[in-house]
Design a protein around this nucleic acid. Structure first.
Length: 463
RNA sequence: GCUCCCUUCGUCUAGAGGCCUAGGACAUAGCCCUCUCAAGGCUGUAACACGGGUUCGAAUCCCGUAGGGAGCGCCA
């Protein structure tokens, strides 16, 4: 049987990094074992599912490069299949109709809670003590959970987890309007789709014994379960909109590389010795769901930032070009040639943590003129430094070859001739051509800028 | 309330009874390098939740306690 995993988000909220990490684990596991990765949209909650959320899932997965081999399946398109299985179970007697009204159920729960008991359905319709068909109500369908014994979930990350069946009640698998519910759809889908490994958040661990019992009732072999810990916000509290629980696409906007985000996420709950930086291939080769930790982990934006820069510095510059262009376009800078972009990436990658920052720091490479920062100009463009710049400008004009190496040599030579420290010459030059005090090394900066633009900007300052 | 899960530096983690004077990384502090900003290098601060066992020996095994989380829906 080919290893088959699935990612089954529900489009009731925007896909965030918590979901992305379970998707990543599932994807990695399938890839590592040469298996199949399925994407399934669990949209049976007609009330709360939104097309926008579906779009974010699809676009987010695409941006991250977590390609699925099958799907996306939509549960709303499988209602026919659920009905079929339901009929089968009704015939087999493993499920039953329940005519209890919501009010009755509420009252039951209220009474149980008053007695400090766990609220659960008492099975009155199962044992003929309920209202029955004569109530005229449309019934729900409940699953006959075993009333005795225990159900053991064999979980690769948690080990065996034992649940007493007496703790489990008869859950509703079809609403009174006939639509199936989550726990039932999951069971049918996972079985139909041949899912061999169910990797999901550990908030589902408590649902698992019920699903397991249904699976058994349907005569299926249970899959391997792996309940992975949750991701918490930086403050250790549940992930919220304030930090982390934003659409995954926001990370694209903020200038993160997909591989960096994935690398960050894979290290939450998983490690390989002391290694911090992993390429996509390394993740596929080294990741194993068995090595995932049990404890939840807090999201640390600083480390993500650091990793993003590490990935920018290590990646082949050409591969970054489209990402940087994307950011520049957002800043309204369109005219950028691939070669120039590549040079900018090489010059800027160790001074920017994100692509967005890189783009913002690189504005001065584009356009003709530049606006001088007042404070910088006042400090560095003094009468004395203008003199030096004047000298330098005429020498730059004559420089036979416009390369970083030759510019470097010339700037140094001029500084020596004028008995100025390099800083006394380079910094005014920097202010003149970039408008500010921060840029890549001045030789590289001029090389990228080109002779014409450099001379124009110098002239504008020296006037 | 009941059931289930979890617990090593601020954070992510290494650690499967002696290799632990608890290692690495982010963050943080100092120093070095230096044309700015960075990147990089070096050094420092900083953790086994608590209490009992088991054992010659426990961060590692067992039992409690405390704290945190999840589930208990005609939500997924």
């Amino acid at each position: 049987m080919t290893t088959t995993t699935r990612f089954a988000p529900s489009p009731t909220g925007l896909l965030h990094i918590g979901g992305v990490r379970t998707a990543l684990f599932s994807w990695l596991y399938a890839r590592r074992h040469g298996g199949k990765f399925i994407l399934r949209i669990e949209d049976t909650d007609l009330e709360r599912s939104t097309p926008e959320a579906v779009r974010v899932i699809l676009e987010g997965m695409e941006w991250l490069g977590l390609a699925h081999d099958e799907g996306p399946h939509y549960q709303t398109q499988r209602f026919g299949r659920y009905k079929e299985v339901l009929a089968q179970m009704l015939a087999a007697g493993t499920v039953y109709h329940c005519y209890c009204s919501k009010d009755e159920l509420d009252a039951m729960r209220g009474a149980q809670q008053a007695q400090k008991l766990k609220p659960r359905y008492d099975g009155r319709c199962r044992h003929g003590r309920g209202p029955g068909a004569e109530s005229g109500r449309a019934p729900v369908v409940r699953f006959k959970n075993p009333e005795e014994g225990a159900t053991v979930v064999r979980d690769v990350v948690h080990g065996d987890v034992v649940f007493q069946n007496s703790e489990l009640d008869d859950l509703i698998i079809a609403r009174s309007d006939g639509t199936p519910t989550y726990n039932f759809c999951v069971v049918v889908d996972d079985a139909d789709m041949g899912v061999t490994h169910v990797i999901r958040g550990d908030d589902h661990l408590n649902n698992t014994p019920r699903q397991l019992n249904m699976l058994l009732a349907l005569g299926h072999e249970p899959p391997v379960y792996a309940h992975v810990p949750m991701i918490l916000g930086p403050d250790g509290a549940k992930l919220s909109k304030r930090h982390g629980a934003v659409s995954v696409l926001q990370y694209q906007e903020e200038g993160y590389l997909p591989d960096a985000l994935l690398n960050y996420l894979v290290r939450l709950g998983w490690s390989h010795g002391d290694q911090e930086i992993f390429s996509r291939d390394e993740m596929v080769k080294l990741f194993d769901i068995k090595d995932v930790n049990k404890a939840a982990s807090a999201f640390n934006p600083d480390k993500l930032l650091w990793l993003n820069q590490q990935h920018m510095m290590r990646a082949e510059p050409v591969t970054i070009v489209p990402h940087l262009r994307w950011q520049l376009v957002h800043l309204g800078i369109e005219a950028a040639d691939d070669g120039v972009l590549e040079a900018i990436i090489i010059a800027q990658r160790e001074r920017a943590k994100t692509l967005k920052e890189m783009a913002e720091n690189s504005r001065f490479f584009f356009g003709e003129g530049v606006t001088l920062d007042d404070k910088a100009a006042q400090k560095h463009l003094t009468a004395e430094s203008r003199q030096a710049l004047q000298q330098l400008a005429s020498r730059l004009r004559m420089l036979p070859e416009w390369t970083a190496a030759s510019i470097h040599e010339l700037v140094q030579a001029v500084a020596a001739e004028l008995t100025l420290s390099l800083g006394k010459l380079a910094q005014p030059l920097r202010v003149a051509v970039t408008g500010g005090t921060v840029s890549p090394p001045i030789d590289q900066t001029l090389a990228i800028l080109g002779r014409e633009r450099t001379m124009n900007r110098l002239l504008a300052v020296l006037g």
